[in-house]
Every structure is written in C-alpha cells, then in structure tokens.
Design a protein around this nucleic acid. Structure first.
Lengths: 121, 121
DNA sequence: TTTATATACATAGTTTTATTATGTATATAA
DNA sequence: TTATATACATAATAAAACTATGTATATAAA
C-alpha cells in the first residue's frame, strides 16, 4: 500500500483553477460595474492592442459558467434593436475576483522566476 | 494498492500552468545543458518555493511531446541502480525556446495590463 | 520489519478549457 | 449585394493537464 502525503497542507498557486479568461472577466467587471459580452471582448482587445483576443467560443461559455457558479448576475437590455446581456459581480463574485487575482499574481511571479533564469555564458 | 491524498488541501488544478509547462522545461534546459525528468520537477519546486508543482502526469507527457517534435534529445544513464533519462535541447529546440519565451513574455505583459486595472474608488 | 518517503520513469482514462465552425439576427458601409 | 460590425449562442473537436494507477530501488521512520 502506497500513501502519498506529499502535498498535504502546502500552499500552492496550483489552486489557480481555471485559465486566465475567468480572471480577466472578473477583473474587468471589478473595474467597470456592468459590461456585456461583446463589450468585454472589445475591451480586452483594446487594452492589449489586439494581442489577446477573447473569442466568442471561449468568452460566452466562460460567462455562463461564472454565472452558473454564482459569481455573476445578469439582465438584458435592448439597444438599437440589439439585445445586450449585461453581467455584474455578485457579492460572491467580488470575493472570487480577489482570490483569482491573488492567485494569478502569484502564478505570474513564479513564472517569471522560472523564465528569467540567466542562460550560462 | 495506492491511495493518493494529494487533494486534501487543494482540490484544484493549476490551469494557468496549461500552456506554460513546455516553455518552463525548455527554459530550464537552456539554462542547464542536460536534465532528467525528476530533476526538472524538483528544480521547478525549488525555484518557486513549492508553489508550482510539475506533476508527473503533466511532466512526462510534455517531455515526450517535446522529444517527438524534435526539440529535445535523450540518453539514459544508470545512477545508484536507478535509471535516469537525460534530456537536452536540439538545435531546433533552441530556436523553439526563444520563440516560446518571447511569446510567454508578451502574454505575461498583456495579462498584467489586464489585471492591474485600477478599481474605481 | 512493516510502513512511509524519496527517487525515477511511464501511461490509460478522464476532465477541463479553448478553438473551430456554425447558427440566429440587426445595422451600416462598400 | 456583399462585407463588416454588433450581439448572442453552442455543438464538435482538439489540446493540455489531472487523476489514478503501474513498475522499481533505496533509505528512514514507526
């Protein structure tokens, strides 16, 4: 019988569950009270000068999951004959945003430690 | 029989790690001529103070893929009755390392742009 | 002396997540 | 009339990591 106790009670940025899309969405909504999906995709494109594109096939399922998990709430609005579905953070969503941001920053710091190693001369 | 208690304190996987494992491996091998799998996993753990754990189920398949893609070459050595499989960068692997590092740094920069937005007062 | 930990590799099966491709619908510019 | 932009949605697929095993040796702890 083999029991592996290696990781019990070690703090670990592996707890950073989802990819960064959820974190990005949550952070944008922490910055701006309410946004609709297309607006989020455009904002990401704008901020990153077109270098990060949140594709619809990733964006909408991510929004639906965040809503299903209770982190986002929605209402729809019609603007110039087009439906917009606005998302905003719930109370739980605000907690989750702080957690995910903290994890993301830890992860980035660790990744930089790993990737900035000096190459031997 | 094998009982794995890995998930007692963190139930989640590290999804931001998704996509960066290959880059991390390549960078470590750019820094240190040759390394074997277990050594790589320990090095990552050491550099990140145990905060990033390259699990075997991710590490070994990643090494095999990098080798299959022609970026790594290997030889085995027996040390104290245990087999070690050493990996090192091929010429193509060195080019790939530079590419992946550049991409990773761009991504980190963009992610920081997105995540460091000021929250409205 | 049995159990646990560490070293060292491997992989089948599953889950998660993003991409690709497609669909609906309206408005406007070419 | 076509292409592009706005606005949402999702099925099918692919990629990547995780879960949970397996093999094997050596040593420390109970």
């Amino acid at each position: 019988m083999y029991i592996n106790f290696n990781y019990i009670c070690f703090m670990n940025s592996n707890s950073m569950l989802k990819g960064s899309i959820q974190t990005i969405i949550l952070k944008l909504l922490a910055h701006q009270e309410k946004m609709y999906g297309y607006e989020i995709s455009q904002k990401v494109k704008e901020i990153t000068n077109g270098q990060i594109i949140l594709k619809e096939g990733a964006l909408y399922p991510a929004l639906h999951k965040l809503e299903a998990d209770g982190f986002l709430e929605t209402y729809t609005e019609v603007f110039e004959n087009r439906v917009r579905k606005y998302y905003s953070l719930t109370k739980e969503g605000k907690k989750e945003t702080a957690l995910k941001l903290s994890d993301a920053k830890d992860f980035i710091a660790n990744l930089q430690l790993l990737l900035n190693l000096k190459i031997a001369d």
